[in-house]
Nucleic acid binder design. Structure first.
Length: 224
DNA sequence: GCGACAG
DNA sequence: ATCTTGTCGC
């Protein structure tokens, strides 16, 4: 069976028109913020999605869920969301608490057709969503200052599609972009407000800790 | 044709 | 993403 990339491409263009790139909630003051991350197991045949709920502004871990779903598509740059969304949708349904803001590991609109995983899933969840990727998919940006907090625009075809943020000194920058129902400015501000001394914002960092059984998560489990 | 290419 | 120990640097 071959993969119909032409059809997926068409779907992306269709979904991209539905992405809201402004603040739906002008005065967003979330009670709960979620973080989502996807990993793979069993030789890449199973997608494992982890999602956490943290409180704002404490950013304390409140809930976590993990879902395992059979993989249906290989990794193809530009089509990541079709590979990871099924697992993300599965964990989403398992959540007891629904967030007011969501962080997804990967690009939002900083994608060739404006539909990275964060935007694709944000459309499904219908919640303000921010995409935070650890590397670039597309777009150009100028040299970033070495200090933590330095930021530059991520541009693509004459448009600002996101921000490149050095969240921590001596670390590669983060690529922040609009997922859904939020503006580029707010996506950057909320990402900065969720930083607590590490390269990744807390929601994403916790999701990764849960998915990878990091010692920080094991310690949290022990004192529950 | 050649290089780039989220996770 | 994942396979994986130690190791260099702050």
């Amino acid at each position: 069976m071959s993969i119909d990339l032409v059809r997926l491409n068409t779907l992306q263009q269709q979904y991209a028109t539905k992405i809201i790139q402004h603040d739906t909630d002008k005065t967003l003051s979330p009670r709960y913020i979620a973080g989502g991350d996807v990993g793979f197991e069993a030789q890449g045949t199973i997608a494992r999605a982890a999602m956490v709920i943290v409180t704002w502004p404490e950013l304390k871990l409140l809930e976590y869920q993990v879902a395992r779903v059979p993989v249906t598509l290989p990794y193809i740059p530009g089509y990541l969301s079709f590979r990871e969304c099924p697992a993300l949708e599965a964990v989403w349904h398992m959540l007891t608490i629904k967030p007011d803001l969501l962080f997804i590991d990967g690009q939002g609109i900083a994608h060739p057709r404006g539909l990275g995983v964060a935007s694709h899933f944000g459309l499904f969840a219908d919640v303000p969503t921010i995409g935070v990727a650890k590397s670039r998919l597309c777009g150009q940006y100028t040299k970033l200052a070495p200090e933590a907090g330095s930021v530059v625009d991520l541009c693509y075809q004459g448009q600002v599609i996101g921000a490149v943020l050095r969240s921590k000194v001596r670390c590669n920058p983060l690529f922040v972009s609009v997922g859904h129902k939020i503006s580029t400015a707010s996506a950057l501000i909320w990402t900065q407000q969720c930083l607590r001394g590490y390269r990744l914002p807390e929601p994403t960092r916790w999701a990764d800790a849960v998915a990878s059984h990091r010692p920080s998560f094991e310690r949290w489990l022990a004192q529950q």
